[in-house]
Write a protein that binds this DNA or RNA. Sequence first.
RNA 1: GGCCCGUUCAUCUAUCGGUUAGGAUUCAAGAUUUUCAUUCUUGGCAGACGGGUUCGAUUCCCGUACGGGCUACCA
Length: 518
Amino acid sequence: MSIRVRFAPSPTGALHIGGIRTALFNYLLAKKYGGTFILRIEDTDQTRYVEGAEQYIIDALKWCGIAPTEGVGFGDGQYAPYRQSDRFKQGVYQKYANELINKGLAYYAFDTPQQLEAMRTILQSEGAKNQSYSHATRMRADLDLQNSLRMSPDEVQSRIATGEPHVIRLSIIENQIVTLTDIIRGEVNFNTNELDDKVLLKADGMPTYHLANIVDDYEMKISHVIRGEEWLPSAGHHVLIYRAFGWESAMPQFAHLPLILKPDGKGKLSKRDGAKFGFPVFPLEWNDPDPTKSFDGFRSLGFDPSAVVNFLAMLGWNPGTEQEIFSLDELAALFSLEKIHKAGARFDYDKAKWFNQQYLHATSNADLAAQLHPLSIERGYTVSEEKLVHFVGMMKERVMFFNDFLEKGYYFFEDVKEYDAPNVAKRWKPETREKFNDMLSMLQTLDYTDPLSMEHATKEWINANGLKMGEVLPILRIALAGTMQGPAIFDMAAYFGEVETLRRLNRAFEAFDNFGKV
RNA sequence: GGCCCGUUCAUCUAUCGGUUAGGAUUCAAGAUUUUCAUUCUUGGCAGACGGGUUCGAUUCCCGUACGGGCUACCA
């Protein structure tokens, strides 16, 4: 049997990383077995449609390197269209809903929202276990539900003919056990008495998730449904819908993924948690006309997409070895649904950062320099790629994100903006000032292609002049970089060369002299 | 409330009845770097609880507790 999977998000806003992980697991299964991975857009709720969300989903999957083999934005395959609103226009869902009506497995319901509310109020006052539209309630005369089961065929026809708003509900049979075998969780049982008569077709004619999802999975010959655990409670309904259509033998296998939880474990990760906890929960940035609705993504923060994917893959799955760093190909080769964890996994931003650092360190200096070059030009720096390789070599171990290179290392390309005054003040004394002038002339005698010999010579000079390392070296560092942090002093000097190094020292010493005079 | 799912260090996890319960992240200490970071070494930290089954349970079963999800004409 060929593997056919789908990722079926709803374009209601930016896709967060939980969605990305679901897509990733689908991708990995398809990739492992040479199967098909479809992107299907489930835009059946017109009230929640968000402009740009579909494109965001497409861009996010591309950025992560887990592009589907076909689907919206990725080319039409055998079973296109892959957007449910387009399929709706073809009459796909109406046809199947009517089929169930004709089989007597679904019925029309004309109840208004107010009438449904009244029903719930009554049931609540009775102390009923649940207040749902179901086998137990749909026929009750005292509830006066407006469904076709309680009407003559003529009345039903006339109500429909006059355009009275109505839905189609699945008629669920009484007191049966429905069993679903989930790849991750094993057997899950539901008693149909607990299941409500789900709406299949809404009053606006659009299908609900339950109908559209199953119809499409069937028509697209999906072999495995890999989705979030939030769908497990309605999986019983889904089995019943397959059964109603007579498709049970073609029913896909299910794998309900554990949820990604908030860092504090209280609830599933949500879109607002990024702002709340101070870390990204989206792959890509989102620029909203309303700036308060805009946010950063892993991409805009400088994460390597491979690191993000690696991190997400390890949230709820691992191959059982002690290896943690995997390429996408390795993940695909090792992946199996059976090894997915049952329990939800908390989002751990520290671990995400660690993964990113691992990827950054593993990227060659030449590659990093090549990526940095256009950005440095953008900033107005005139620096060759060759020079950037040298720069990257010094800074690589000191940055967490790609974006940090030019942020933390800006002083390699322009003058120091601000000197670390407190640390200068501790060491910049009238009695040493003269010595520093001597040092300047000593520094003109050094070989700037050889940092090690420069260091030796300078240290020798320090000793010969009766100074301490701690009095001199930090001054040099701050003069070159402005800060106490950064690469080795003589590596920086070698990068700058003699002329620029001395220029910086002179400029800095002058500034240091003026520190107290403000 | 009802239904469904879950529960190994603070966090992500390994263990498919017999282990000094392993690794990673975070944290702490030390070494290196007279900066910072990297790297290395060391340390601390776990089977929710109560019953069974068994020669033997983290592992299997039941219960309790706790956590999560669902409970819409949203997905």
